[in-house]
Nucleic acid binder design. Structure first.
Lengths: 328, 328
DNA sequence: TCCTCCAATTATGACGTTTCAATAGGTATC
DNA sequence: GATACCTATTGAAACGTCATAATTGGAGGA
């Protein structure tokens, strides 16, 4: 493989110095028209490709941003990643994307690699709640936390309290006298906050959460656990409305309903959380709380690139998307 | 912001030359134990982070691989990306991920950026069928095509003919006398191949495709088009089995069934293609053809890194996953 | 004691780019 | 015709790393 064509080869062929060639690339206005045209022609001819490493070594700044989400194969993060990509593309930047798998070691290793690469900045979805997101503080480059809140670092998140509140208000407005809530592990902040939103909605309605609400806490946000929770809840005939802390739980709940010969929304109304794209196409479209993940990603990058334009923390409002599963 | 700590700072502090420090990093066996320990201690102390740009400039090889898929927010590519990431992680490599949005310009711009970055290699899902994937040939670094086949370039793909064949065989085995097939645009090679597989399966069964098969070609692989196709097909009472060229079409079909008061599999059996993760959790789990996307991604990277271990083209076998939607 | 050999270390230059001070011409000013 | 000024270009240094060849300082053999 022949050596890549460098700025030096171009300069030689054009009979100018490398400085001039470099100027064509970086300060085109500083070089005479004729010279510039000639150099550009030679570049095209020789198929010149600038060497980003050399540039970066010289100027210090890179063209890439590192992103660590928990799992890129999770559609929830996928839309977030797309928002990030879209904002980066505006500035001609590239995204290095990794999955932490909620593994400290793995995460640390990616963050170190990012540092070595000299990334422009880093976006991270922290996990292992309360485990001091401050560990991201001295990475040596700008950092924005995704789907989190921190007293010290810039961050973006969605208002989980409000989302849950909207969902439960919707159910109460439909006339349901009792609310069942399938929640995930309370170690997860989103779950704690959603629980709070549920209680608030009930109180807003002038009711007493302790009598109106039945909560089942499950071990993980999966359909399997949703199914189990539903079978527990449905033992009680008074259960007519189930709010789930995420869509997967809601799918599990729906399956259990079907197995028991019950149907949403006729027998039991079901509301999910996350609004995973496909679920709106279901045979029975699922009512769910939509989180603006694309905007979240977009904004996180914007905070990285233009910190002065934003407050330290940006919170997005979720919106309830009402579909057939909860409306009789 | 103080300058990053360099190998030179370490050398100075340790009272050795930069060469020795470099050796600690790259040829630890060549440096005396005591010296190595001392240098490592100083590195930890000074929080040294190697400069990948400088290394890359010097040695020429980078630690990153560029990936262009059509749209990272599509779960289909997402699992592929995860396979890619997993294989890269084994070698400590990073992934730069972009969406082409089936836009030539956008794609070209990403590919050029990859070249400038000096990536180790590129993985790309070509689009705009037959538009000479040879345009990827002289990118200047190893390239593997994803979900494609090329006479010249290494590539990985799934056998679409076989997938469709399995799906339709399954329906025929269930005793369906007629098969309806909702296919996408024939400009897409996967759609053409799936059509071929459908006919083969019917012929395998000793039947005549021209009398047994009803095909509807729609404009795009979306639920909306699936719905339309279904309403067309269901006008014929003899329609008892619908095979769809992808899962989204199948979801649209299912919705239309439900609107008409019909149910799968009792009235009409439905089979999809792609086996999108969530659809197995549906209230009525969907029978679908699963494509091993994770393996596809994994293997594509392996072909990039160890070409000698693979043939030029690797084809994966899809597997039919039978669920409730197609079995009475 | 001298010589050889080996392990450990060093000095140096190069990778491709950008920046910045310096210079060469040319044009306008007086 | 000398001076000042501007524009276009140059030359050289520097960014941090790594490989190569050269050097050092012992240890072991004769």
């Amino acid at each position: 493989m022949p050596r890549r064509v460098s700025i030096k080869d171009i300069a030689e062929r054009a009979g100018v110095s490398t400085g001039t060639v470099s100027n064509v690339l970086n300060h085109p206005e500083a070089v005479a028209d004729a010279t510039r045209q000639a150099i550009l022609a030679i570049m095209a001819d020789l198929n010149f490709v600038a060497n980003a490493s050399a540039r970066q070594l010289r100027v210090g700044a890179s063209q890439t941003v590192g992103v660590v989400v928990m799992d890129i194969s999770n559609p929830f993060y996928t839309e977030l990643a797309r928002g990030i990509e879209d904002r980066l593309a505006q500035d001609g930047l590239l995204m290095m994307l990794c999955s932490s798998d909620e593994n400290e070691k793995r995460e640390a290793s990616f963050l170190r690699q990012f540092s070595e690469q000299g990334v422009l900045g880093v976006l991270v979805t922290p996990f292992g709640e309360e485990a001091a997101p401050e560990k991201y503080a001295d990475l040596g480059h700008p950092t924005v936390l995704l789907d989190a809140d921190s007293p010290t670092l810039p961050s973006v998140s969605v208002d989980h309290v409000d989302g849950a509140r909207q969902a439960v208000k919707h159910l109460l407005d439909q006339g349901h006298a009792r609310i069942s809530f399938v929640n995930g592990p309370l170690e997860l902040r989103p779950c704690r906050e959603r629980a709070e939103g549920v209680r608030l909605a009930i109180a807003d309605h002038g009711l007493d959460p302790d009598t109106v609400l039945t909560t089942v806490n499950v071990g993980a946000l999966t359909a399997e656990f949703g199914k189990g929770a539903a079978s527990q809840l449905l033992a009680d005939d008074a259960c007519t409305a189930i709010f789930c802390a995420n869509d997967l739980l809601a799918m599990g709940v729906s399956r259990e309903l079907r197995l028991r010969g019950l149907a949403a929304p006729g027998d039991v109304a079901v509301v999910g959380y996350d609004d995973i794209a496909f679920l709106s196409e279901l045979m029975l479209p699922l009512t769910s709380v939509r989180q603006p993940m694309h905007d979240l990603g977009w904004t996180a990058v914007d905070m990285l690139l233009r910190p002065q334009d934003h407050p330290k923390h940006v919170s997005f409002a979720p919106t309830l998307v009402v579909r057939e599963s909860s409306v009789r």
